[in-house]
Simulated scan of single mutants.
Amino acid sequence: MAVTEHTHNEVSDELVREHAAGWHAFTRFLTIGTVAVVVLLILMAIFLL
């Protein structure tokens, strides 16, 4: 049975911070977009009543 080496790639802290900031912005955009759609649907339902 062959033994494989598991090595860890070094990742810079700056790259991790950059990616985390990107995901934070993306999830914030999705949250605001979802809330906007829900508010729009509620306003449309009130208009129909």
Results as ranks from 00 to 15, higher is better:
residue 39 V to S: 00
residue 7 T to A: 12
residue 29 F to E: 06
residue 12 S to K: 12
residue 27 T to P: 01
residue 15 L to F: 05
residue 4 T to Q: 14
residue 11 V to C: 04
residue 35 V to K: 00
residue 11 V to W: 07
residue 45 A to M: 10
residue 30 L to K: 11
residue 9 N to Q: 06
residue 27 T to Y: 06
residue 33 G to P: 01
residue 47 F to I: 04
residue 1 M to A: 07
residue 2 A to H: 09
residue 47 F to A: 07
residue 45 A to L: 11
residue 47 F to D: 07
residue 43 L to R: 11
residue 29 F to M: 01
residue 39 V to G: 00
residue 22 G to P: 00
residue 32 I to F: 12
residue 5 E to T: 13
residue 41 L to A: 11
residue 20 A to Q: 10
residue 34 T to S: 10
residue 7 T to F: 13
residue 43 L to E: 03
residue 24 H to G: 14
residue 11 V to E: 03
residue 12 S to D: 00
residue 43 L to I: 08
residue 14 E to R: 11
residue 34 T to C: 07
residue 41 L to W: 00
residue 19 H to C: 14
residue 49 L to H: 13
residue 15 L to D: 07
residue 12 S to M: 01
residue 39 V to W: 02
residue 43 L to H: 14
residue 38 V to R: 01
residue 2 A to W: 13
residue 48 L to A: 09
residue 9 N to P: 08
residue 37 V to Y: 09
residue 10 E to H: 15
residue 47 F to M: 03
residue 20 A to C: 06
residue 10 E to V: 08
residue 18 E to V: 03
residue 7 T to W: 06
residue 24 H to V: 12
residue 8 H to F: 14
residue 45 A to Y: 14
residue 3 V to F: 07
residue 32 I to L: 09
residue 41 L to V: 01
residue 10 E to I: 08
residue 31 T to F: 12
residue 35 V to Q: 01
residue 22 G to K: 00
residue 46 I to V: 14
residue 31 T to D: 05
residue 31 T to P: 02
residue 48 L to R: 11
residue 38 V to K: 00
residue 25 A to R: 15
residue 45 A to V: 04
residue 48 L to P: 02
residue 27 T to H: 10
residue 1 M to N: 11
residue 40 L to A: 10
residue 35 V to R: 00
residue 8 H to Q: 14
residue 41 L to K: 03
residue 1 M to Q: 03
residue 41 L to S: 02
residue 13 D to A: 14
residue 47 F to L: 09
residue 33 G to T: 02
residue 27 T to I: 08
residue 33 G to K: 01
residue 4 T to F: 11
residue 13 D to V: 05
residue 19 H to A: 15
residue 24 H to F: 14
residue 42 I to S: 04
residue 39 V to M: 00
residue 36 A to Y: 01
residue 17 R to H: 14
residue 14 E to V: 06
residue 29 F to G: 00
residue 19 H to I: 12
residue 17 R to Y: 12
residue 10 E to R: 15
residue 45 A to F: 02
residue 11 V to H: 08
residue 42 I to L: 04
residue 38 V to S: 00
residue 44 M to Y: 11
residue 4 T to L: 12
residue 1 M to L: 07
residue 17 R to G: 04
residue 20 A to Y: 04
residue 40 L to Y: 04
residue 46 I to F: 05
residue 34 T to Y: 04
residue 17 R to K: 15
residue 48 L to Q: 12
residue 26 F to M: 09
residue 5 E to H: 07
residue 40 L to H: 09
residue 45 A to S: 12
residue 23 W to K: 11
residue 49 L to E: 13
residue 40 L to R: 07
residue 32 I to V: 07
residue 10 E to M: 08
residue 44 M to D: 02
residue 6 H to S: 03
residue 26 F to E: 13
residue 46 I to M: 10
residue 5 E to D: 09
residue 45 A to R: 10
residue 4 T to R: 13
residue 27 T to N: 05
residue 18 E to M: 02
residue 5 E to G: 05
residue 3 V to Q: 04
residue 32 I to E: 03
residue 39 V to N: 01
residue 48 L to I: 06
residue 46 I to D: 03
residue 18 E to R: 08
residue 27 T to W: 07
residue 23 W to A: 09
residue 8 H to G: 08
residue 29 F to R: 04
residue 15 L to T: 07
residue 43 L to W: 08
residue 2 A to D: 15
residue 48 L to Y: 02
residue 42 I to H: 01
residue 4 T to E: 09
residue 16 V to Q: 15
residue 29 F to Q: 05
residue 4 T to Y: 07
residue 1 M to R: 12
residue 33 G to M: 01
residue 8 H to A: 14
residue 32 I to P: 00
residue 13 D to E: 15
